[in-house]
Amino acid sequence: MAVLKVDNLSISFGGLKAIDSLSFEVEEKAIYGLIGPNGAGKTTVFNCISRFYTPDEGDIIFNNDIDLQKYRVHDVVKVGLVRTFQNVELFKSMTVLENIIIGQHSNTKGGILAQGLYLPKVRKEEKRIREKALGIMDFLGIRGIEHYPVAGQPYGVMKLIEIGRALMTDPKLLLLDEPAAGMNSKETEALTDLIRRIRDEYDMTIVLVEHDMSLVMNACERICVINFGAKIAEGTPAEIQDHPGVQEAYLGEEASADA
């Protein structure tokens, strides 16, 4: 069953086609990679799926029957779709725990008056989401820093906090935008493990955009390669590595001249 179906997606910015009739499907519980050279349009695809952009053409169907284009950007999280950002977008003035707790925003009960009066149900909710967040921090191995401001954390930890915040939304589909950016090879290895563990233990589908080939080849089961907004190849990591079009796209004319 396809959890995410992108069909004939196109978007232009000022006459420049950023995505050109792109179609792909992501199966349930898959780890799916979206790769391509710089400026290929990978993040633009994410922005369309997560509703930051409205595509000119095409459909994005989530969970078989949810037409994502009918949802506003802050509503997609309610249907079970969440994303991270390329350059960590955390809430800098808040603590680590508060950052993660925000993930439950849509599921936190209690109106304005109830919150201002701090009624028992609000108290109970606060306790519930706090414990849930601490559980996620345990899972990510970042327990102990919950009351520190997020601003002073090392980059690798910030990336984990952002993933934690995404997990807090109870997603069915997690979109990771360059999770390995700025990490060394050892950290990337740990991240590969983590991505698999998230899929297995939280029972979700993961789509990731990534430049780091070791992560993509080790973690992903299927890969879609795009260049200039159009799909040039799709398949298993082994198939992609052998694909001539992919090598050309990455290495440019030099490679084709050598060949």
């Binding site: 509503d75 809430f91 808040m94």
Partner: peptide, 11 residues
């Protein structure tokens, strides 16, 4: 702090 991230979290 970040309008984009806030929206992505459902705010």
């Amino acid at each position: 702090d970040s309008e984009h991230a806030a929206q992505a979290m459902g705010v």
